[in-house]
Design a protein around this nucleic acid. Structure first.
Lengths: 395, 395
DNA sequence: GCCCCATAATTCAGGTCTTGTACCAAGGCC
DNA sequence: GGCCTTGGTACAAGACCTGAATTATGGGGC
């Protein structure tokens, strides 16, 4: 049973408008002719719709290019200053905001530290609203030009009837973040789990470009994954799909901080690796340097080998279950491990995956760092913009 | 990034036709008014399109129903004799064919035993073609009335450029089953892995009805799964998604017949359970009675408890990764275990799944037996029919 | 038995959309 | 300068959906 496609008439125009805009957005600079070829729409329709888009100020002509013996083609491009988007990374230790134009060029940013144990919603909301005014002022952008605010949060985001955030680390249980923010701004709000937004950033601008079936793994202190099926993030029935870190990899195995036993995270999470090495509980920044030190310490080799073996099993499971074309290893710890041990990781995965799906997949390193959470959150807004292609929200 | 919606004009009509036909197919008996309400299309359009469908003989009027003080509504229904579909179950020990009308009422069937080690493609193709003529003759149906043949095979089915079957158990490596059959019949051929077709049968007519995010598990001698995301079977990049049986559940665990170590199948597959109990290698039918005997044998309890514990871990992994709304336990061994131990299985899953997704999922027994493979294979044809809604293939 | 009402379904005019064809634009090449 | 090639646009034709008005069909009140 496939998608129950919409059945209207003039939404065809909206659909084509959206299709053309999206094609142009990801194609960067294309002529009308290119658009016709890429979308399958007739040249007349392309001309027509592009005319609308230009009239609306969303698209501009951007010079011409000679073609061997013929009329030079006019290149089109999305007007990057048509609107702006804000990406917010709500992390465990800080709130970061970035303002981008439509080409995802950063225009301004702001950052606020979160004190330990001071994670009440009102604190976070205040930081976001203050940061919003700050980045707008810095970039000289008016609030009316902002298409939306995308927020990556460390928890589960219920999209359904309204935006609710569940974040155990913050003690948030069903916080209506959208409503709270709407009290301070009229800009549309979007949110998703930070791992998911980071996955989306890799998908759009990083190691996932061009792939339709991707699993983006996120290995930091904890372990997670973002699953892209058919080019779209898969969220499951209540937006918590991708909890790879707490899949059981060793029945009756090591205790995990989630309360369970034998979770993958208890073997390949940075905290777990460091603990195996005898390093106690370290504050955030120190974890990273401690793990980096392990990578050059011969004495740490057995611990790392064990972590790689378990990681390989976890990746093998993803390969067998999802049959993706690409797996991206990301997260700060994932990048550290991957840069040093990617061949070993690939080999470990091959030991656990079936041959047929293993032959189809490439395991690669993420290309974006942890700061991509905000970038990815901002793409939530752009995605919505491309889908609506400039039409106002409730229309 | 969502689906790149089509951008044509008269395909709107085809889309609406398909939408209406699908709604009617699953709604069984509906009035034009109901269709308008359910699809969101205007009554005028419904009338118009339904008129076409009636003229084409696909839909018929089926009596009227009084409504309290008003014109009685005419009920519509899909003409079940408009076309017929054939479902084929290519199993390890036999080839079964069933002929259905569009309402999935069985009209005829045929079965051919496969001798051990005699699995050459030509043997299977001959059985299918012979069986096809047999069921058509039995039911008095002409070949031209058959909309398609759906085949469930025990292996990986590559759909991509053309239909290729990889089945290790048969020694098939890229067998072009479609081409082979087309030499003997002009009827369109569809194929998928038997576990997937069975999952589709449960989804359409069994325990999965009404759900959009389902994992259908299949526990028999081996272990597999069929993953339904957003109402459609997820196949991954090369159609091998859902290889749950060979996900690692115990690093450095028990050896599996796949050559790996610690696979789920090595703990919860029927063969593995029987082996743990000290029962040697048994032929097919005996496995089933042996497992049934274990369920009433107190001495077997520790082995069963262990199997349930591992099954719970495996289910927990599915819940954490996919966040489905429903998990269906199926396959002959799954049904046996489930009928006796479903509460224990649920509890074991809860020990391994995170609380949030666990609260969203219901774990249920499959309602269809192993014979549903052919039924599910036949739905592949119906699915295509509904999508095309009666328009000829290459149009 | 007649009239009014409620609900179901169809007809029809109106408007929107894409498309194919013909046409205009802009440069290279001889 | 004329011709060719390629890019882009104008216009009429055709297809489709929708909303409003209309017809169809039966129940209930008087």
């Amino acid at each position: 049973m496939r998608r129950p496609q919409r059945g209207t008439l003039r939404d065809v125009r909206r659909g084509n408008r959206s299709l053309l805009l999206r094609t142009l957005y990801f194609g960067h600079e294309l002529s009308r002719h290119d658009l016709s070829r890429l979308t399958g729409l007739s040249p007349a329709t392309v001309s027509n719709v592009v005319g609308d888009l230009i009239a609306d100020g969303i698209v501009v002509e951007a010079g011409a290019v000679d073609s061997d013996g013929g009329r030079p083609r006019t290149l089109l491009r999305v007007q990057e200053s048509y609107g702006y988007v804000v990406g917010v990374d709500v992390g465990e230790t800080r709130v970061r905001l970035e303002l981008f134009d439509l080409s995802m060029t950063e225009k301004a940013k702001a950052e606020y530290a979160l004190e330990p144990r001071r994670h009440e919603p009102s604190v976070v909301v205040d930081h976001i609203l203050t940061g919003l005014r700050s980045v707008l002022a810095d970039a000289g952008v008016d609030e009316s030009q902002v298409l939306g605010i995308g927020i990556g949060v460390p928890g589960i985001v219920e999209q359904r009837p309204e935006l609710l955030i569940h974040a155990r680390a913050f003690g948030w249980n069903g916080v209506p973040l959208g409503d709270r923010l709407r009290a301070g701004t009229a800009i549309p709000i979007f949110a998703d789990n930070g791992a998911q937004t980071m996955g989306q950033a890799e998908l759009w601008f990083g190691a996932g470009v061009g792939a339709r079936h991707v699993v983006m793994t996120l290995i930091g202190t904890g372990v997670g994954a973002s699953i892209i099926t058919d080019g779209a993030t898969y969220r499951g029935v209540s937006s918590s799909a991708g909890e790879w870190g707490h899949t059981t990899i060793a029945v009756n195995g090591r205790a995990c901080r989630c309360g369970g036993v034998g979770c993958l995270e208890a073997y390949v999470g940075a905290e777990a690796i460091l603990a195996s090495h005898g390093a106690g509980h370290l504050p955030g920044g120190d974890e990273e340097s401690a793990l980096a030190a392990m990578l050059t310490d011969p004495a740490a080799r057995p611990v790392l080998d064990e972590a790689v073996a378990f990681l390989g099993a976890g990746l093998g499971n993803l390969i067998n279950l999802f049959n993706p074309e690409r797996i991206i290893v990301g997260g700060w710890a994932g990048l550290l491990l991957g840069r040093a041990l990617l061949p070993e990781i690939r080999a470990a995965a091959a030991r656990h995956a079936l041959a047929q799906p293993m032959a189809q997949v490439s395991i690669e390193l993420g290309r974006l760092g942890p700061e991509a959470v905000a970038l990815g959150a901002a793409t939530l807004v752009v995605e919505d913009f491309l889908l609506r292609s400039g039409t106002p929200r409730h229309a």
